[in-house]
Computed example of a mutant assay.
Amino acid sequence: MDYWEDLGGIPAASGPSVVTIGNFDGVHRGHREVLSTVVKEAKKRGARSVVITFDPHPALVHRPEAAPNQIMGLSDKKKFIEEVGVDALLVLPYTLEFSKLTAEEFVTRYIAEPLKACAVVVGHDVRFGRDNEGDFRRMQELGEQLGFDVIGIDDFGEDRRCSSTWVREALADGEVEAAAEILGRPHRMVGEVIHGAARGRELGFPTANLSPESTGFIPADGVYAGWLIDEANRKWPAAISVGSNPTFEGVPRQVEAHVIDRKDSGVEDFNLYGQRVVVEFVQRLRPMVAYRGIEALVEQITEDVERTREVLLSGQ
Results as ranks from 00 to 15, higher is better:
V251F: 10
A42E: 03
H187S: 06
I81V: 15
A47N: 02
G184N: 04
V39Y: 05
R292A: 15
V193E: 05
S265D: 06
P237W: 03
I240R: 01
H187D: 05
H57T: 08
I218M: 11
E306R: 15
K44V: 11
G22Y: 00
V86M: 06
H62F: 15
S14V: 13
F248W: 14
V27F: 08
V27S: 05
R137S: 14
F128D: 07
E249F: 05
P114I: 00
R109D: 14
F98Y: 07
K77W: 07
G266N: 06
Y273M: 06
G226I: 05
K40S: 13
R168S: 07
V277S: 09
F106P: 00
R160K: 14
G85N: 12
Y273I: 07
G26L: 02
G204W: 07
G9R: 08
I194F: 00
D149E: 13
R262K: 13
P212S: 06
V242D: 02
D25R: 10
G200T: 04
W4Q: 03
E97N: 13
A257Q: 03
S244Q: 06
H258N: 11
A257K: 01
H124A: 12
R160N: 10
R138W: 05
G22N: 03
R63V: 15
I10L: 10
H28K: 04
R45D: 04
V278Y: 03
K77Q: 11
G134Y: 04
A42D: 08
E256K: 03
E303K: 14
L96K: 15
P93M: 07
V19E: 04
A232L: 14
S49M: 07
K77G: 06
R63Y: 14
L96C: 13
D155K: 13
E177S: 05
M189N: 04
V305P: 03
Q70F: 10
S36F: 04
A220L: 07
R127I: 04
G200R: 00
S75N: 07
D2H: 14
I81F: 07
K40W: 03
